[in-house]
């Protein structure tokens, strides 16, 4: 027990939280890469695409959780609502990051790759995308941290994860579970953040500092 919360409960809720915040992060990333590439590549499409996805971010999370069943035809208590909402927020944040990332690739590098005979798509995969990783990773870190925080609000509509500790604690007038929940949320956010930094560093060995001789 810690702060009136059983370890096993804490473990289960943390895993649920990771699933609800982490899976949308991956799906959102996969969706944002082509969207961000389009925004960076097609001049007239960029501003409306980024403004449009950004607009989704203005919808308060509780409202989005409640409205999605209306659109998706799902049950109010379904995980799917939370997952879809988090995908929407991830895409809203990441599309801009990915577009910025592609824009950060130096034009001479892109032109050199084209001159060597890369086709557009192959070049994007082999040259542009790897070089855009640092900027995309920065956006992904923001998305990961805010996803973890937002998911906890789903406790208000009865979807269980770490946020459930908040509502339980509040209903029982007990500070313990709330504090445990906050610490667990922050820890999860920090862990996800560190994981993204690690993966980005492994994927971009060229941007690491020179190894001392």
């Amino acid at each position: 027990m810690i702060g009136g919360v059983a370890w096993s409960t804490l473990g289960d809720l943390t895993l649920r939280h990771l699933y609800l915040a982490g899976l949308p992060l991956l799906i959102g990333l996969v969706l944002s890469v082509p969207l961000g590439w389009l925004a960076a590549r097609v001049r007239w499409l960029g501003p409306p695409l980024i403004a449009g996805t950004g607009l989704m971010y203005t919808i308060p999370s509780l409202a989005l959780f409640i409205l999605l069943p209306l659109v998706l035809g799902t049950q109010v208590l379904s995980d799917v609502n939370v997952l879809v909402a988090m995908v929407i927020y991830t895409v809203a944040l990441l599309t801009r990051s990915v577009a910025d990332g592609f824009a950060s690739v130096p034009a001479p590098v892109r032109q050199a790759a084209t001159a060597m005979g890369y086709g557009e798509l192959r070049r994007v995969g082999a040259v542009d995308l790897p070089l855009a990783i640092p900027v995309i990773a920065a956006g992904l870190r923001v998305a990961a941290v805010s996803n973890v925080s937002i998911v906890s609000i789903a406790a208000l509509i009865g979807v269980s994860q770490l946020g459930q500790l908040f509502t339980d604690g509040f209903n029982r007038n007990a500070m313990g579970p709330i504090l445990v929940g906050i610490v667990a949320c922050v820890a999860l956010a920090v862990a996800l953040d560190a994981l993204i930094v690690l993966v980005a560093t492994l994927l971009t060995p060229w941007s690491r500092r020179r190894v001392p001789a």
Binding site: A155, L156, G163, L165, F170, M175, I178, G181, I182
Partner: peptide, 19 residues
């Protein structure tokens, strides 16, 4: 900004009210 973003607003809200 980064640090505060990680703190769940719902939890903080309840803590403030209980306190």
């Amino acid at each position: 900004t980064g640090a505060v973003r990680a703190i769940p607003s719902l939890g903080v809200l309840f803590v403030a009210v209980l306190l």
